[in-house]
Amino acid sequence: MEVVNLTCVECPVGCSINVTVDGGKAIKVEGNGCIRGKLYAENEVVCPKRVVTSTVKTTDGRLLPVKTDIPVRKSAMFEVMGLINAVVVAPPVSVGDVLVDDIFEGAKLVATGNAPTK
């Protein structure tokens, strides 16, 4: 059994959380200001995940901001970046459009900006 100290990154409060880990699993979570921190901590000691935000090119040479709709494995972030960088989309695109259905392990790639037709 060991106690791991984490900073929750789910919101700007940044709670300092102590997680008691046993057999690779969180058995106790303390210090979290809300339920999201508990989920974050439980996941963090097993398999840390992050939402990846980046940009993709449009066919007419603009940049469009994008994100994964769910967090992806932190250890695979560079791999995900490589996959995102290979994507090119044709305008028009609006906020919320799904650009790739499964960019990595079930995560969708979603537009976070608009690229209207010129």
């Binding site: 939402v51 940009t55 901001p65 608009n114």
Partner: peptide
């Protein structure tokens, strides 16, 4: 500001900057 984390107080979700503006 294409990173996420905007709007947690206001919209209770984590938005990218351009999404918040939109």
């Amino acid at each position: 500001c294409i990173h996420n984390g905007f709007g947690l107080t206001r919209f209770k979700e984590s938005l990218a900057g351009p999404e918040y503006a939109d």
